[in-house]
Write a protein that binds this DNA or RNA. Structure first.
Lengths: 272, 272
DNA sequence: CTTGACCTTGACACCGTGTCAACCCGGAAG
DNA sequence: CTTCCGGGTTGACACGGTGTCAAGGTCAAG
């Protein structure tokens, strides 16, 4: 017979936890003194304790551990749980690895530049989105060429939506595609439920499963700065980008481009 | 200006969390309506939000994130934090990998045998331990040879300790070493603070940094069963064992070996 | 004015574990 | 036999990041 302290010390658990397991019915002491309430454990309970600890170390919750050790599960179900756990762990591993790469990237950055970057890239999923849009051709993918094409295009879209009595339901989005002869097709899209404006195209922008995004503040003529940060982040973190970035207009000021705020979103994949 | 809901949706955070960040002073809304208490966020707050989210995704706690974004830290300190985090992550990674291997090993086992193993191996650290001991030579490492040597040896140790007025402070431990001519030196050790018995050797059993352990119930003649489980576990989980296992007697019954309980402990290393 | 979507605060829950407080027991020393 | 100390008992609170619920106030569209 072991007192709780001895049993705990040998089993490498805290006495606190043994009491907890008792409370959960996971591991009851072999004997409880009815008078003093002292718990006493027998040597052969070490195997149950070990089973519990082993399962817990595998990352199962105490509840799951309970189900497993009390063999409420068929071999089939057990396989199921283990496979689930396996999948979870693989996921977790991937996540941890990504974190680590990220931390290392930042560490390199800070060693090189001597300070913390203030423009932060974050990875997110972009949900699919219904929009109304117009598009046009720009001679190149360059702020100076694109601006003059894009601005009036958005003007048109808003005007036509307004005429059709449809309300924009979100922030305007510009996106790009390669077109013939090295030209670029620019799209001016405004989120809206499908409407009946014959002079607008209604479509659904596809989901981006993983997009690297950055918030750009100020004139779009300086978008390069943010795009570069984005590109570097993507490379440093072991992703690969696809296509052109979408540009979401979060804040617009007719008079002063310095007040503009955009979010750039570019689809990325984990190479492999 | 965004309402909390819009800001949350765009930033991929829950409104709950934005309120939490407000409460922590991590990200205050640009404007709070004094009358209604409504929070309103400005577009340029997205970059702060993103910085927060990015740091959080790196696995920093909100408190740490606070310190980092508010730049209360020098580049030096930041480097420190990042390196610490890096170390933690590497650790976590190793742990996750081990878990995964373990889960996979069990999965293979259960697929092969159709049921869950009930003898559970667990990995633990064995602290160094002061003991009093006697040793002798056994012709081989085999239950039939060892028993007759070991039992009287323990009798001697207990007797001499008793004569010297020293109290055992833990469970008896047997351990083994190779000796000359393929014989084995068996040690009968009993935990005790250093004493003055000239006819006993007092020494400190070294720490085992990582030991794979299993609880064996019953006669030591059947120790093979547990030792095999142990060996297989070690192999399946990608460790390598070193030397012979220690045998800790957790429960002893003079009359019936079926009631004996031992823990086998064998030092292992992660190959690599 | 009504309705329904959205906002407010405050509270409770999760989970595994540590820690504290207030009190009781067991065994060894005086 | 008393005294003392280590260790046992229960019960409570805390952590952190997040979800969820309830009760009530607000906003904007019809």
């Amino acid at each position: 017979m072991f007192t709780i302290g001895d049993f705990a010390a040998f089993g490498q658990v805290s006495a606190r936890m043994l009491r907890h397991y008792d409370a959960l019915g996971l591991l009851r002491p072999a004997v409880v003194d009815q008078v003093t309430g002292y718990r006493y454990y027998s040597a052969d309970q070490f195997s149950r304790l070990n089973r519990i600890v082993a399962l817990k170390d595998l990352g199962f919750s105490l509840q799951q551990v309970g189900e497993i050790v009390d063999a409420k599960l068929s071999a089939e179900e057990l396989r199921g749980m283990l496979r689930m756990r396996q999948a979870q762990l693989e996921d977790e591993l991937a996540r941890s690895t990504a974190r680590l790469t990220s931390v290392e990237a930042r560490l390199r950055l800070i060693e090189k530049e001597g300070h913390m970057p203030t423009d932060d890239v974050i990875l997110k999923r972009i949900a699919p989105l219904r929009v109304a849009e117009l598009s046009a051709i720009s001679p190149s993918y360059d702020g100076a060429d694109i601006g003059p094409v894009l601005q009036p295009l958005f003007g048109q879209v808003f005007e036509r939506l307004w005429k059709a009595g449809v309300n924009p339901s979100g922030a305007p989005i510009a996106y790009y595609e390669d077109a013939e002869n090295d030209t670029i097709r620019v799209h001016a899209a405004v989120p809206a439920e499908a409407g009946t404006a014959a002079d607008l195209e209604f479509l659904e922008l596809p989901e981006l499963d993983q997009a690297a995004t950055i918030v750009h503040q100020g004139d779009m003529m300086e978008a390069d700065r943010s795009m570069q940060t984005l590109a570097r982040w993507i490379e440093d973190n072991g992703y690969r980008s696809q296509g052109y970035a979408r540009e979401v207009t979060l804040q617009f000021d007719e008079n002063d481009p310095a007040n503009w705020v955009h979010e750039f979103q570019i689809a990325v994949t984990t190479p492999d």
